[in-house]
Simulated assay, not measured.
Amino acid sequence: MPEQDDGEHEFDLRWADAATHKEPSARARMLAARWKENPPEPVPFRADPGPAARSRSSWLSTALVLGCVIGVILLLGYVRFQAPY
């Protein structure tokens, strides 16, 4: 098997994952430096929801959809009735 230069070796992901020391990402380093001087304020796990927006009731939406379906069925029936064979 011929010798290969270091640049020609295929990157082995398993070898990289098994490394004992992993360098943090640039974003992690940036946030660590920023938070060292100005730490973020604590945030609750789930914030209290604000007032809920009033939505239309489900029966109104159902009636609208059924009305549209019935209108399309009637329109298609009318077009077919009017078309000569």
Rank of each mutant, 00 (worst) to 15 (best):
M1Y: 06
M1K: 09
P2G: 08
P2L: 11
E3Q: 10
E3R: 12
D5L: 09
D5F: 08
D5M: 03
D6S: 07
G7W: 06
G7F: 07
E8G: 04
E8Q: 13
H9E: 13
H9K: 15
E10R: 14
E10I: 04
E10Y: 00
F11N: 03
F11Q: 10
F11L: 10
D12K: 11
D12V: 09
L13N: 03
L13G: 02
L13A: 11
R14F: 09
R14S: 13
R14W: 05
W15M: 10
A19I: 00
T20A: 13
H21Y: 07
K22W: 07
K22I: 08
E23R: 14
E23K: 12
P24D: 08
S25N: 12
S25Y: 02
A26H: 05
A26P: 00
R27F: 05
A28D: 10
A28W: 01
R29A: 15
R29H: 03
M30F: 15
L31I: 10
L31V: 11
L31C: 01
L31N: 06
A32L: 03
A32D: 12
A33K: 11
A33S: 09
A33R: 13
A33D: 07
R34K: 12
R34Y: 02
R34I: 03
W35G: 00
K36G: 03
K36F: 06
E37Q: 08
E37Y: 00
P39S: 07
P39W: 06
P40Y: 02
P40I: 01
E41V: 02
P42S: 04
P42C: 04
P42H: 03
V43F: 04
V43Y: 03
P44N: 08
P44F: 00
P44D: 09
F45V: 08
F45I: 06
F45S: 02
A47G: 05
A47I: 01
D48T: 09
G50T: 02
P51H: 06
P51I: 01
P51M: 04
P51S: 03
P51C: 00
A52K: 15
R54C: 02
R54G: 04
R54K: 14
R54V: 12
S55A: 13
S57K: 06
S58L: 12
S58A: 13
S58T: 03
S58W: 07
W59H: 10
W59T: 09
L60R: 13
L60D: 05
S61D: 11
S61C: 05
T62L: 13
T62W: 12
A63F: 05
A63G: 09
A63Y: 03
L64P: 00
L64I: 10
V65D: 04
L66W: 09
L66E: 02
G67R: 07
G67S: 10
G67I: 01
G67K: 04
C68M: 13
C68R: 05
C68A: 15
C68F: 12
V69L: 15
V69S: 14
I70D: 02
I70A: 15
I70T: 14
I73M: 12
I73K: 04
I73R: 06
L74A: 14
L74Q: 02
L75G: 14
L75T: 11
L76Y: 05
G77W: 05
G77L: 13
G77S: 07
Y78F: 12
Y78C: 07
Y78I: 08
V79Q: 10
V79E: 07
V79G: 08
R80T: 05
F81D: 11
F81G: 06
Q82W: 03
Q82E: 07
Q82R: 14
P84C: 02
Y85L: 14
